[in-house]
Amino acid sequence: MTLLRAPLPLRPGALMPSLQSISQSAAITPSIHPLAFATPSSRSAIAPTPCGSRGYSNLGSIERSDFYQAAEAEGVSPSQFKRNILRDKDVLLSGLPTTATPADIRALARESKTANDVARIEFIYTRALRPTGKALVSMSSHVRARAFEADAHGRIVGGRMVAANLRSTDDRKRFFLRTYGDWPASYQIPFDLIEYEAGKLVLLRNIPKDTFEARLEERLANRYDIKPQDRWRAKRSSYAGYLHDSKGYGGSHDAVLGGVLKLDKLHADATTTSFIVRCQTPSEAMRLVRRWHNTYFAPATFDIQDTGGRYRVSASILY
């Protein structure tokens, strides 16, 4: 009986030439990691996840290469540190010129997406309602807030260098409480008017204290388009007087307002006071400012020779 031998490639311990070539090429070619072709920027944009911490694997969405190192430095958990970052949606600007407008602040953003993400601009005022050169910009996204901070910091506006600092929503409340919390409660309506009618309000300063609202409104209504007397309702959003009495905050105003609102005197011996004029449109407010700024109030009644120019009116728009 003749025994047939198996072909050489099929004998035990022998490999087929094709398999042998594949194994040799695999031994020569190093293994390729999925991140081997990742660019340095893409690797740094994802926070490294420690081994064995699957619960924190979703925290890599925060674009910080030192995410876990920063969380450890602040002494908080990664999840708490992420919540802190997501609340950083406000940017405090300082060093602004007193004539800055909301358009000037939006122009600080280098991208249109960042400028369109600006949800709110709040200028900080003194008790005389003069701009302090500070403004708090609220954004809709924490990513755009960081981009706006980087764009605005160090920029020149009106010959002055602007400083930008990122703040959280909790810092925003503490900032306004520290700024306006101990002010008289009579500032609530003026600040809420600025909130809802920004750009349409004109502040007239250095007007004689004995001037009545009705008399000034009658004088302005013949030449300017101001709002008529009506019932005004709006949510209370100002922190003025909050530290003295927080009752009613978050509720609604229910007042009867006309086209002119008289403000309280800054001190008991003041001979002048300020008025807020409510115009129908921003263009009408600008027209009133051009006509009244640096003019004398009723020069026929208050003679400049007798008053020494005490009643020289200063007009500006409230934003």
Rank of each mutant, 00 (worst) to 15 (best):
R5K: 11
S23T: 09
Q24F: 13
L35N: 11
S44V: 11
G55K: 08
S61R: 14
S61Q: 12
S65F: 09
Y68I: 11
G75A: 02
R83W: 02
I85K: 08
R87N: 08
R87T: 09
K89D: 02
K89M: 13
D90M: 13
G95Q: 05
P102F: 10
T114N: 11
A115V: 05
A119N: 12
R127P: 00
L129Y: 15
R130A: 14
K134V: 00
H142G: 07
E149P: 02
D151G: 07
H153I: 10
G158Q: 01
G159A: 00
I189M: 01
I189A: 05
F191A: 11
F191G: 11
L193V: 06
L204Q: 05
N206I: 12
P208K: 03
T211K: 10
E213N: 01
R219L: 08
L220W: 03
N222V: 03
R223Q: 14
I226C: 04
R236Y: 00
A240I: 03
G248C: 01
G259S: 10
L266G: 02
S274R: 04
C279F: 03
M286D: 14
R290K: 12
R290D: 13
T295I: 00
F297Q: 03
P299M: 05
A300F: 08
T301N: 00
D303K: 09
G308T: 06
G309D: 00
S314P: 01
A315V: 08
